[in-house]
């Protein structure tokens, strides 16, 4: 039982990290990013490839963050020129390009075969010790990311960002450079998503392009909306509700005799869809929402 709970918490933590990053992009800066899973994939593959070729896990994590952040750079430059309606589609396309590159470049990524046996850290601690230590790592990463975001938000940089979001033209006339600030926000969020990818790869121990589909991005958006746009604690609550919804349906099914998993799979998709619609309709500010921005 404990190990299952820990597994749930680890996955929740990974989603929370993704949600924090998205919240930083959207809730904080208003950047519409529908390509989140692309950064997640880059992080996962970077760390998996490096560690599988014998480098340390620590290096893998750092490289995952750096590479994911760098990949946001060209996308960010393009994005800055576009209106928000274009940006949603372009970022969606970016994630798809990342996935296709991973599928195609099989000399590097083994393509659709995927990368198996990605090493787990803390192997010396035994089976359950390893899980608990990994949970600790996930929590630590979340705390660090939250601290970074909070620090940025309450710094002069954060005030600049808010000012840009509210009135970009006014800020440019004051001699500030909004594009550079936006790009930095984009890269920092992408780096956090890359870190989430690395945590994911070393936990599941197997990465394959099929895991990095747009649905993951939508899940993270859903978690952000559920928790509250622009709210840091909301990121955690949203991720928790999301995983509870995804996993909880398994238990509901166990309690309902006569309902088969085959039908439950459809019910699960249906419930997620309806949940998303209801939240957008009835509580757009989320559970912990501070302001209505959607």
């Amino acid at each position: 039982m404990l190990s299952y709970l820990i597994a749930i918490l680890i996955v929740t933590g990974i989603y929370a990290l993704l949600t924090q990053a998205l919240n930083f992009h959207y809730g904080f800066m208003g950047l519409i990013n529908f390509g989140h899973v692309g950064f997640f994939a880059i992080g996962a593959y970077t760390s998996a490839l490096l560690t599988l070729s014998g480098h340390s896990i620590a290096l893998g994590f750092v490289a995952a963050i750096v590479l994911a952040a760098l990949s946001a750079c060209p996308l960010g430059l393009l994005a800055l020129r576009l209106r928000e309606d274009y940006l949603a589609i372009v970022t969606l396309g970016f994630a798809e390009i990342v996935r296709v590159v991973i599928v195609s470049e099989d000399w590097l990524t083994r393509g659709t075969q995927g990368l198996a046996n990605v090493p787990r850290p803390f192997a010396s601690l035994g089976a359950s010790g390893q899980e608990i230590a990994y949970l600790g790592l996930v929590v630590a990463c979340n705390v660090l990311a939250a601290a970074l975001i909070a620090r940025l938000a309450y710094s002069p940089f954060g005030r600049l960002i808010e000012a840009i979001r509210d009135d970009e033209t006014a800020i440019s006339t004051l001699g500030k450079y909004p594009a550079g600030a936006k790009l930095r926000v984009f890269m920092v969020g992408a780096g956090i998503a890359g870190l989430a990818g690395a945590l994911y790869a070393h936990y599941i121990t197997y990465v394959v392009p099929d895991q990095f589909v747009p649905l993951v991005t939508f899940y993270v958006w859903m978690a952000m909306i559920l928790g509250g746009v622009g709210s840091l604690p909301g990121s955690f609550i949203g991720a928790a509700i999301l995983v509870a919804l995804l996993e909880g349906t398994r238990f509901i099914r166990d309690l309902l005799p006569g309902v088969m998993e085959i039908q439950m799979a459809s019910v699960r998709i249906f419930l997620i869809g309806v949940g998303l619609v209801l939240f957008v309709l009835l509580r757009p500010q989320g559970v912990m929402g501070l302001r209505v921005r959607t």
């Binding site: 597994a7 998993e261 085959i262």
Partner: peptide, 16 residues
């Protein structure tokens, strides 16, 4: 009975 969604992550959680 469980659905692995033909994807490793839900499969791992279901397995656990």
């Amino acid at each position: 009975a469980e659905d692995d969604q033909t994807s490793p992550e839900p499969a791992v959680l279901a397995a656990k």
